[in-house]
């Protein structure tokens, strides 16, 4: 399907976003000697091996003990270290929520919580590991910045950018091999939405893996004579309200697309912004109050309604409500 469509962004290579994290961490470590890494028995899964190899004195294996890892990281910030913790997204959030809340967010410590295998695209491991609530939990915490980049290049750029930002950050990425469609030399600006495609009939606000699906959906809509604007919301908090309002002022309606529960996700944040400033029709693409299950990433994205076809449907529904 991708082949026959006239896509505004294309790719020649696919890679997992977690590798973008691993490579970005290595670069950040080279640039700044205060960057340290911690991992809870998932070095290979988080792609932290290269950092460990190059900076063994700045890398700490904590074993299967995520709560301890968050506390250690908070402690290391006290004299200026910049700790990057690595584990799966569910063990990075729900498992250690109170540790993050008290020792990192409330205490406003410079910890970077780096979370892999988020969402349904984790695939066969099933619902215990496919967290779909993490963005909600993290964005509710005062002081916390929440970032969900869309491909390998953007994840690498985001990883390097958060090393230079002072304050707690939740960085979410995933496991599957995914199109690399954003430039390698991009500058990552925390909190600044990226208008990727101009349009006038509807705005698609997408985050994470769903940005690619939004790019595909835009081409599908264009074939039907519908002009969609695609905005990449890599930073869910702080939300770029200005960019959102400006776009919806023009298009008059919107779709949010994310690999997350509708409750507490990006769509919720956008809805708050629209309701307060410009109540326009908004349709949601996300998981509707359900846990995931085992399956291949493609099957799951289809079953739970998270692919380009569903974004197209949502866009038409939003336009119809104008």
């Amino acid at each position: 399907m991708d082949k026959t469509l006239d896509l505004k962004f294309t790719y020649t290579e696919k890679k997992d976003t977690r590798s973008g994290f691993g490579d970005g961490l290595l670069e950040a470590g080279r640039k700044n000697p205060n960057v340290v890494g911690l991992c809870a028995d998932l070095i290979g899964s988080l792609k932290m091996g290269a950092f460990q190899k190059e900076f063994p004195e700045r890398f700490f294996q904590v074993g299967i003990a995520e709560a301890n890892m968050i506390g250690l990281a908070a402690g290391m910030t006290i004299n200026g270290k910049i700790p990057f913790t690595g584990t799966f997204a569910n063990f990075s959030t729900g498992r250690v929520y109170d540790q993050i809340r008290q020792s990192v967010a409330y205490s406003d410590k410079n910890v970077k919580i780096c979370a892999s295998h988020a969402g349904l695209t984790l695939g066969e491991d099933g619902a215990t590991h496919q967290i779909l609530e993490d963005v909600g939990m993290m964005k509710m915490l005062p002081h916390m910045t929440v970032i969900n980049p869309c491909d390998y290049n953007q994840t690498k750029a985001a990883t390097m950018a958060i090393a230079e930002y002072e304050g707690p950050v939740y960085l979410r990425f995933g496991r599957p091999s995914w199109p690399i469609f954003t430039p390698a030399d991009q500058k990552f600006e925390i909190g600044k939405a990226w208008k990727m495609i101009e349009g006038k009939d509807v705005t698609i606000f997408a985050t994470g893996h769903l940005v690619w699906e939004a790019v595909v959906a835009e081409a599908m809509l264009r074939e039907e004579g519908i002009s969609a604007e695609v905005i990449n919301i890599h930073t869910i908090k702080p939300l770029d309200e200005e960019a959102i309002l400006e776009s919806v002022k023009k298009t008059g309606c919107a779709v949010s697309a994310e690999e997350h529960q509708l409750n507490g996700g990006l769509g919720d944040s956008i809805a708050q912004t629209l309701i307060r400033n410009n109540p326009a029709p908004l349709e949601y693409v996300g998981v509707n109050d359900s846990f995931g299950e085992s399956g291949t990433p493609t099957e799951l994205m289809e079953k739970y309604g998270l692919n380009a076809e569903n974004i197209v449907k949502a866009a038409k529904a939003a336009i119809a409500r104008k």
């Binding site: 619902a127 215990t128 085992s294 399956g295 291949t296 099957e299 799951l300 079953k303």
Partner: peptide
Amino acid sequence: FRKLDSRLQGH
């Protein structure tokens, strides 16, 4: 096992 719509979930 581990397939879509299965009772034999990954975990």
